[in-house]
Design a protein around this nucleic acid. Structure first.
Length: 977
RNA sequence: GCGGAUGUGGCGGAAUUGGUAUACGCGCCAGACUUAGGAUCUGGUGCCGCGAGGCGUACGGGUUCGAGUCCCUUCAUCCGCACCA
């Protein structure tokens, strides 16, 4: 009987679906285990071979856990709100819901083909009103809460309001103090906007990352190098009313609790970095001639005597007020150019720029006048938007001072020989000098002392600052969750919980309105109670994904986002698998929402995922071809109907043509030839390479679909031609190759797999050719899951061969041929050695070594000519998480009525594994002279005796100058002369 | 610049606490069976050397009887953050 994987896999796929084999129940006495994959955005391209890597790994683990007696929650769903479907809708008018539905069907089909053991009865979609009802509900909870910093937890805002009514407010950085009498006189609108300073979900005028090309606001982590992460459009800064989430309130907890979870150090570090806690102090510099003062934040109050100027961010509110008349023009001009620069331009510019405001502040300790400057290097969003500049001990201040020739007095003792005319000394070690009451103190002690002094004088106080910013929450898009807010007289009010979900309305078009309002403004008759405008922005992509793991626990609950019982049973995620690219996005936000829900006791845990594993990316190997652009040469007779030759040229020749005369002439000759070939009436004297001396700009290198290129990089010219022609829609072209007769060699490069790069390998093709079991095992065999690597099918035959061999172990020409003979110790040892290795390796998620272990095992069993039931059956069970179809089939063939899914992972019997001997290396003068095979159980004295009894040793010892042997059981035999 | 990770044959990668480096797979070489094979099976395969032997885990040091593994220096590659005061 042949190993007919196509038939076997199709049969079992159907059987498992019919039996609902993977459905799990919330009510069971079994212990729980929660294995979750990050749910995907269902893109139009479907899955490529890179996607399943994490899914297969988590699936293997889930299956393994089931075999070891756990009730395993292993669900899947779709993060189905998102930009591509919307952009497609803008282009084609097709409703994003339709696109999404279609893509989901495709994903589902692919998931099933790979035999991922998801409980589909728990599937969720973020676009489902029954789901986003609860996303909106959580938004309302956040809106109705504030953060109590004393208690370090969120509380209902009604508590805060009650406090205002009773005692007023003492004031903080953002809100001025007011009395209870004043509070009572505030209008509805005033109260509303005041409370926005406290709510965890709030509306405010904010500088946002505005992307004009997409017509939307982006979060900081959606902007990379000044352009949008998706699409790469330029992003600029803009002040506008904006919904935000006060994630900064949780900064301290998000940081501290990282220590309680088993996540990759790189992710934790990225989050620590992103949160960016720094301890320091605020300090006020009184303005000379004004009542106001400038507040700065510094981590180095020890260097306060080295301050020679103060720098404000160009957008700082005090700038206008303090600038002197003579400096006004220059300062305004500078502030304006700075404001209009995009983030990208600001970053690209390495030049030090700034302007003097004409104003001075009084140094709080020395009483000297210190000039106030503005400079781009100071960011409005961090600290107070103002810095005290200590050029001698801060690189940036140093550069600024050099540029504008400001004094650079030294106040920390630098190492001997330090040249302050070249660079600043930023080190946090050394003694204070020229610093009045700080003189002689070490930096650390000086910081402490300085803060004490600052606080004593009431000019500032010790403070912790975070780099983390509040997260923008509104998007000017259609395809997202509506924000459940309506406006009455311009004041935002929340919907009542009973009115949820606020369903996404239909619109006629998906682009912004002519007046620049979001698409939702197009919705007809979409008004709260028929008269009040709803909020037109929708929630960002991360909203639905910030709590989805909870919904799987109780997916059909209409009364709660999940029942208390379900949450109590399933708790948080035990193993979470997904890409590292979400380090400072999703992985931070879903921790934030978990903590928030915990504050209100909806959850009994403070972190969403105990353990996180990042699977590496599987990259594609792209192929490239270089063509000569038709603009490189002139061709007369280009009247309608003429055919332009588009010439593809190999890298080798491209370089030659650029540098050498002779090849160029040869190329022109060729060019004329193909012109005439395509246009017999062309005037050859008018054909020549044109323009300038540099020809490099006339070459274009572009991706070639990998399926047109052989493994040794040779392009299939005939298949390629229609593809290449498609670049020239309006121009009649003929695709030519130079040199003509030789094979065209493409260049290769490893990149991210993506449709636009034409390097996608579809898992369906692999499954068709080798089967899903082979695909699963091969993807695991490629290497450790967390490693990124280019996809290559080299080696897939080895894994496929293993499965075929396994199949043959069960069958001979006559049919099933399992031996019922009792296994001997040797065979048992092979089995149990493998079981032990596999068990341990699965538990530490080292699946590639598991696959190796199975191969070794089968090789050894074949060497022993063993096909005994007693050995093969446990092996099948252990293998079943990796290759579910073939093991299920063989299990049935071996005579089992029940599915292998119901089996138990075999128990490892260590008794079979006892090693009888240990190799003791005997070393002498640092070199191993020989290995002694000795029983393991020997004591030190016995080993000494054995060593001396051994004939070879004895002989060698006689000739050697050894006087003494040092013996450590199980380790080593040392000899000393 | 800061932070993190990685560096082992022709290739993907093993080596769990320091203990015979290169398991397993691919590729390659030879052979067997075949009309044939992109089927199957057997053997070989780090480098230098005829050989004994020597050299080998990015480079250079160190600790140790013994280092891929621990420590220090340098280099390379990848990832994240980046005027964060």
């Amino acid at each position: 009987m042949e190993y007919n994987f196509r038939e076997i896999e199709a049969n079992w796929r159907k059987k498992w679906a019919d039996d609902k084999a993977y459905q799990v129940d919330n009510n069971t006495a079994k212990p729980k285990y929660y294995v979750l994959d990050m749910f995907p955005y269902p893109s139009g391209a479907g899955l490529h071979v890179g996607h399943p890597l994490g899914y297969i790994a988590s699936d293997i683990f889930a299956r393994y856990k089931r075999l070891t007696g756990f009730n395993v929650l292993h669900p899947m769903g779709y993060d189905s709100f998102g930009l591509p479907a919307e952009q497609y809708a803008i282009q084609t008018g097709q409703h994003p819901a339709v696109t999404t539905e279609k893509n989901i069907a495709r994903y589902r089909d692919q998931f099933d083909k790979i035999a991922l053991s998801f409980d589909w009865s728990r599937e969720i979609r973020t676009t489902d009103p029954a789901y986003y009802k609860w996303t909106q509900w959580i938004f309302l909870q956040l809106f109705k809460s504030y953060y109590n910093y004393q208690k370090q937890k969120a509380e209902p805002i009604t508590i805060l309001v009650a406090g205002f009514e009773k005692e007023g407010f003492v004031g903080n950085d953002d809100v001025a103090a007011f009395t209870k009498e004043q509070w009572a006189t505030f209008s509805e609108a005033e109260k509303s906007s005041l409370l926005m300073n406290f709510r965890l979900a709030y509306l405010s005028e904010a500088w946002v990352n505005w992307c004009p090309a997409m017509g939307t606001v982006l979060a900081n982590d959606e902007v990379k190098d000044g352009v949008s992460e998706r699409g790469g459009y330029p992003v600029e800064r803009k002040l506008m009313p904006q919904w935000s989430m006060r994630i900064t309130a949780y900064a301290e907890r998000l940081l501290n609790d990282l220590n309680t979870i088993d996540w990759p150090e790189s992710i934790k570090d990225a989050q620590r970095n992103w949160i960016g806690r720094s301890e320091g102090t605020s300090l006020r510099f009184k303005l000379d001639g004004h009542n106001e003062s400038i507040e700065v934040f510094t981590t180095r109050p020890d260097t306060v005597f080295g301050v020679t100027f103060v720098t404000l961010a160009p957008e700082h509110e005090l700038v206008k007020k303090i600038t002197t008349a003579d400096r006004k023009a220059a300062v305004e001009a500078y502030a304006n150019t700075a404001k209009n620069k995009s983030e990208r331009e600001r970053q690209a510019e390495k030049k030090v720029t700034g302007e003097f405001t004409g104003a001075y502040v009084i140094h709080p300790f020395s009483g000297k006048k210190v000039p106030v400057w503005i400079g781009e290097y100071v960011l409005l969003g961090y600290g107070t938007g103002a810095v005290m500049a200590v050029p001698a001990h801060d690189t940036r201040d140093y550069a600024f001072a050099k540029q504008f020739r400001l004094a650079i007095p030294q106040v920390i003792e630098a190492p001997p020989g330090w040249d302050f005319s070249k660079e600043s000394f930023d080190g946090k070690e050394g003694k204070c000098i020229n610093s009045d009451f700080l003189n002689g103190l070490e930096v650390k002690a000086a910081i402490k002392k300085a803060i004490e002094e600052i606080e004593k004088r009431g000019i500032g106080k010790g403070k912790v600052n975070f780099r983390l910013r509040d997260a923008a929450f509104g998007r000017q898009r259609y395809w997202g969750e509506p924000i459940p807010i309506y406006y009455k007289d311009g004041v935002p009010y929340p919907l009542d919980e009973k009115e949820l979900p606020l369903v996404l309305p239909e619109v006629d078009k998906f682009q912004p309105t002519e007046t620049g309002e979001p698409p939702l403004a197009r919705a007809k008759n979409w008004k709260y109670q028929g008269k009040y405008e709803y909020e037109y922005t929708t929630m960002p992509g991360w909203a639905g994904s910030s709590w989805y793991y909870l919904r799987y626990e109780d997916p059909n609950n209409v009364n709660e986002f999940a029942s208390k019982d379900a949450i109590k049973y399933w708790e948080n995620i035990d193993l979470y698998v997904g890409g590292a690219e979400h380090a400072t996005g999703h992985l931070l936000y879903f921790r934030f929402w978990t903590k928030f829900l915990n504050d209100f006791r909806y959850l009994p845990f403070i972190e969403p995922a105990k353990k996180l594993v990042n699977q590496g990316m599987i990259q594609g190997v792209s192929a490239f071809a270089t063509r000569v652009n038709p603009t490189m040469y002139q061709m007369h007779g280009d009247e309608p109907g003429s055919i332009w030759p588009v010439i593809y040229i190999t890298k080798e020749w491209e370089n030659k043509i650029k540098t050498e005369q002779e090849p160029r002439e040869e190329f022109i000759k060729f060019l004329k030839k193909v012109v005439i070939k395509n246009n017999p009436n062309a005037n050859l004297s008018n054909v020549s390479t044109a323009r300038g001396t540099s020809h490099s700009m006339f070459f274009t290198t572009h991706h070639v679909p990998v399926e047109y290129v052989s493994s040794d990089n040779i392009l299939d010219k005939e298949k390629f031609k229609p593809f290449a022609s498609s670049f020239f829609k309006d121009l009649k072209v003929s695709i030519e190759f130079f040199p003509e007769e030789e094979p065209y060699i493409c260049t290769r490069e490893v990149e991210k797999m993506s449709k636009s790069k034409w390097n996608v390998v579809n898992p369906d093709d692999i499954i068709e050719q080798f089967g899903a079991d082979t695909l699963r095992m091969y993807e695991m065999f490629l290497g450790p899951i967390e490693l990124s690597k280019p996809w290559s099918t080299q080696g897939i035959s080895g894994v496929h061969g293993f499965l075929k061999k396994l199949w043959r172990n069960f069958f001979n020409e006559k049919g099933l041929a399992l031996s019922e003979e009792k296994a001997n110790p040797q065979e048992l040892k092979v089995l149990h050695k493998t079981l032990k290795k596999v068990k341990e390796d699965i538990e530490r998620l080292s699946f590639n070594t598991c696959v190796s272990a199975f191969m070794i095992c089968l090789n050894e069993l074949n060497e022993l000519k063993c096909n005994k039931r007693e050995i093969m059956e446990p092996l099948l069970v252990a293998l079943s998480p990796f290759a579910p179809h073939i093991t299920e089939e063989l299990w049935k063939q071996a005579g089992h009525k029940d599915s292998i899914l119901k089996a138990s992972f075999p128990i490892v019997n260590e008794a079979y594994l006892v090693e009888n001997t240990f190799s003791y290396p005997v070393s002498f003068n640092g070199k191993t002279r020989f290995m002694l095979e000795l029983p393991l159980t020997l004591t030190k004295e016995q080993i000494e005796k054995e060593v001396l009894a051994n004939e070879a040793t004895k002989k060698w010892l006689q000739d050697s100058p050894i006087k003494k042997m040092i013996i450590v059981p199980n380790k080593i035999v040392n000899v000393v002369i």
